Amino acid sequence: MTESLIASIATLQDMIQDARIVAGFTGAGISTKSGIPDFRSPDSPWMRNKPIPFELFLQSPKARREAWRRKFTMDDHYRGARPSAGHIGFASLVASGRMPAIITQNIDGLHQEAGLKEDQVIELHGNGTYARCLSCGRRHELDWVRYQFERNGDPPECIACGGILKSATISFGQAMPEEPMRQAQKLTAACDLFLVAGSSLVVFPAAAFPAFAKENGARLVIVNREPTPLDASADLVIHAEIGEVFSKFVP
């Protein structure tokens, strides 16, 4: 670890210590060390198994079959993924009481696996570890959905109302979830330190939250391997491996 990185981490520790409320914000970069590929990485398996647009999913049984095939292909690709040092570091910050919750763009559920409760993770893009009925909202476990899909060649219908089942993620063209967006807005408005880790900050509307926090008077910290559009306005930028930085916050 270089002297400049050591100094930057020390500065971050001081900023967190001085903060009243810290809002955490995570993107795909926090999960790459867990074995989950970034959507935009070269030759990413996500590019070979792109999510089906929401309207097409609704309109076409063939598209729904293909969407589930791609979903299970990707599940197999990162089966066995476990929380990274970054996830564990963020869980420690939440446990310290300074960070009420984490706003995340990720759908992998690894923040919960790192020890956080459901109400401590604000999932802007949903969660890919289970399915929901688009009509009644009933949750269905993926093992059951996959068993039915592979046995019958078609995805099953909701066991409660017969509606269409979909991975509980937000697809392209689907409306952002109202309650997580409201929770993220509330936390962003209340914080005096907004801490970004592993996000390119180019996907909207999620990427608007750190900018809003800064405009609202909060200090902004960005930890990411690559530059982001908000680096110039941030109070501290650390271009380093996320786990290397946040492992320092684990007791």
Rank of each mutant, 00 (worst) to 15 (best):
T2N: 14
S4Y: 00
I6E: 15
T11L: 10
D14S: 13
D18S: 15
D18V: 01
R20H: 12
R20C: 11
A23E: 04
K33D: 15
S34L: 06
G35L: 00
P37V: 07
S41G: 13
W46F: 15
W46A: 03
P51C: 10
I52K: 04
I52E: 02
S60W: 10
P61C: 03
R65D: 05
R65Q: 12
M74D: 00
A81T: 00
R82W: 00
F90S: 02
F90C: 04
L93I: 15
L93N: 09
G97W: 01
P100C: 08
I103L: 14
I107L: 11
D108W: 02
L110M: 06
A114S: 13
G115K: 10
E118L: 08
V121N: 02
E123K: 14
H125L: 13
R132A: 09
C133R: 04
S135A: 14
H140I: 04
H140Y: 08
E141T: 07
W144S: 00
Y147S: 10
F149V: 00
E150A: 01
I159C: 13
I159N: 14
K166M: 11
K166P: 03
I170D: 03
F172H: 13
Q174Y: 15
M176H: 05
M181A: 11
R182F: 08
Q183L: 15
Q183F: 14
A184C: 12
L195T: 06
V196F: 02
S200G: 14
S200L: 12
L201H: 08
V202R: 10
A218D: 01
R219T: 01
L220P: 01
L220W: 02
I222A: 03
V223E: 10
E226S: 15
E226Y: 04
V237H: 03
V237D: 02
I238V: 12
H239N: 14
A240F: 02
I242V: 14
E244Q: 13
V245K: 05
F246E: 06
F246M: 12
S247E: 15
V250A: 10
